[in-house]
Design a protein around this nucleic acid. Structure first.
Length: 402
DNA sequence: CCTCCACAGGAAGCGCAGGAGT
DNA sequence: ACTCCTGCGCTTCCTGTGGAGG
């Protein structure tokens, strides 16, 4: 048998409707940000103080995922730093994602490392790193720190307190903070002093509506797909789906990306409504699967108990009608969970903690629960799966196997 | 009406892992 | 390297709630 063709030859030569696939992934930060002009202007206004040698006020930005918080902030910072270096102004900035650096110490090290790239600070005390940062700012530098996903920081109170106190010790330079979060509630848990200093200015990014999403998608389509390979109605459909679900630009983009991949796979030349609909299912599944796989093992077991009971479609014993199929009692789920956990795990959480799990699962939208009303003895919760039982059962089986 | 049932969910406390201080 | 401290996941204990049943 002689091998005439490299195995990648076929794959490489495959027709694609993408011009540049990277342009339609969620990681890509677009150059233009439609419908966010006023926010860009407002933030620029705030941070421009540093160009004039003053301290910029701290800013807190809130908005759900995919509303452009990070993109807008990054965009403004890029412009600011570019301008500063052109004019030789002593302004510097730094972006930290607090999901990866979730403590005061780690954030400080990350920041200082940026300013002293050749030195390594891991292992030094927090106080020392603080001093290093202060030293840097003392050279009449104005620093703007962007803390993305700021709600993930464990000891935020101390961090903000420390950084604002830095400003008191500085008579020339300054340090300002831009905090970004998609959780508005977290603000209330903060120390009042932290809150007032972090939230000198606040901004709320609203979700995009269907029309805005349409335009965003159209722009991206132009650079990501070959001309005329995406039908207009497909774009509108993707925008409508995303708008209805969350107003999230990220899911809108994901929808089109997957739809494009589906078309490619089938060798089609166009993306139509049909592909978008199929992509919707895929994106949904991906979301659910991601959610399930990040759940603690015990919680996965609880969900598994719910889904396998739902699959069995147990006829509701002695229930006087009026109750939907697939609705389960809190108690019977706990029994099933105990049985399952004993079957292939030895640990079983208490009933109290099981209830905690149930309410968390509800917060994630994986299940729906209602309080029992008439016709049922005592007070309990009636629980139903938020998605297809078979599918979830399958997903967890896959997850538990690993 | 009272009692029991079948839970919900708050409070306190416990053991552990990992980080800070020494 | 060592203790000390602290946050986290969890248990135990407890009080509250609303319908069923006598």
């Amino acid at each position: 048998m002689l091998q005439t063709q490299n195995i990648f030859e076929k794959e490489f030569a495959k027709e694609t409707i993408f011009l540049d696939r990277n342009m339609i992934t969620p990681h890509y930060t677009p150059k233009v940000l439609p419908f966010r002009e006023t926010y860009i202007e407002d933030i620029s206004n705030l941070v421009s103080k540093t160009l004039k040698g003053q301290k910029a006020d701290n800013l807190f930005i809130y908005g759900k995922t995919g509303t452009g918080k990070t993109s807008v902030t990054k965009h403004v910072m890029e412009q600011l730093l570019e301008f500063a270096s052109q004019k030789n102004l002593p302004v510097e900035g730094n972006y930290v994602n607090c999901r990866n650096h979730n403590s005061k110490y780690r954030i400080l090290v990350k920041i200082v490392k940026e300013f002293y790239p050749e030195e390594n600070f891991l292992g030094f005390s927090a106080a020392f790193v603080y001093e290093k940062l202060l030293d840097y700012a003392r050279k009449e530098k104005h620093l703007v720190l962007v803390l993305d996903e700021i709600d993930k920081v464990k000891d935020l109170d101390e961090l903000v307190y420390g950084l604002t106190r830095c400003n008191d010790e500085l008579d020339k330079g300054s340090i300002s903070i831009i905090g970004i979060s998609n959780n508005l509630m977290f603000k209330d848990r903060l120390d009042p002093r932290t809150k007032s200093s972090l939230c000198q200015h606040e901004m709320i990014f609203p979700p995009y509506n269907a029309q805005e999403l349409s335009e965003i998608l159209e722009q991206r389509t132009e650079i990501a797909f070959k001309p005329d390979s995406v039908e207009g109605s497909a774009i509108h459909l993707a925008a409508a789906i995303a708008a209805q679900e969350s107003g999230d630009a990220r899911t809108a983009v994901m929808l089109l990306l997957h739809a494009g991949e589906i078309s490619d796979k089938k060798g089609l030349r166009k993306v139509t409504d049909l592909e978008v609909k199929k992509a919707k299912k895929k994106v949904e599944e991906e979301l659910i699967f991601n959610m399930i796989s990040t759940l603690p093992e015990q919680q996965q077991l609880v969900l598994y108990a719910i889904s396998s009971l739902s699959v069995e479609k147990k006829p509701m014993h002695k229930i006087t009608g009026a109750i939907e199929v697939g609705v389960l009692f809190s108690g019977e789920i706990y029994d099933e969970y105990c049985r399952l956990s004993k079957k292939f795990k030895e640990t079983t959480v208490s009933a109290r903690w099981y209830r905690q799990y149930i309410s968390e699962l509800e917060m994630y939208g994986l299940i729906v629960s209602t309080n029992s009303g008439k016709g049922i003895k005592g007070q309990t919760r009636l629980i139903k799966l938020g998605f297809d039982a078979e599918k979830i059962k399958g997903l967890i089986e896959k997850e538990l196997a690993t």
